[in-house]
């Protein structure tokens, strides 16, 4: 990931800043420029999502993605946030056999990876069971 791209997405990655449509009130994450429901009638504004949600589904990853080898086996889940949007996130600080669908989680701030040993560090959100 290029540095400018990471930098541009800091509000979304650190603080779950998405968008809310002033016309239909739907919350969108990641943010969009046009409301997919109201099209040209939509009035999108930045909206910070609440950091709470629940596990909709999950999987245990044994063959890790690049940069995640030291964390395998790890949990990857679809989280439904209180505000509505669903997102894919790693569940951290949890043994893979202890998670259940429906578990309440909070979105927390963690290291997501790094460009290289002398490159920038990417921070972002992961989920943790409450």
């Amino acid at each position: 990931m290029a540095v400018p791209r990471f930098w541009r997405e800091i509000p979304n990655r650190y603080n779950l800043v998405g968008a809310r449509c002033g016309n239909c009130n739907k919350v969108l994450f990641p943010p969009r420029y046009i409301c997919p429901y109201c099209r040209r009638m939509g009035k999108l504004e930045p909206y910070r999502l609440k950091r709470r949600g629940k596990v909709l589904s999950y999987t245990v990853v044994h063959i890790a993605a690049n940069g995640f080898e030291d964390q395998a086996p790890y949990l990857l889940a679809i989280i439904e946030l209180e505000d509505g949007p669903r997102l894919t996130a790693q569940i951290t600080d949890c043994n893979p056999d202890e998670i259940k669908i429906g578990d309440e989680v909070e979105m927390i701030f963690r290291r997501m990876g790094e460009e290289s040993q002398d490159g920038v560090i990417y921070y972002g959100f992961k989920a943790r069971r409450i």
Binding site: Q71, I108, R110, R111, I121, K126
Partner: peptide
Amino acid sequence: PGPDEDTATIAVEAAR
């Protein structure tokens, strides 16, 4: 610290 934690992530949790 876990593999995805460092001084910055710990500081953020305490600060929040």
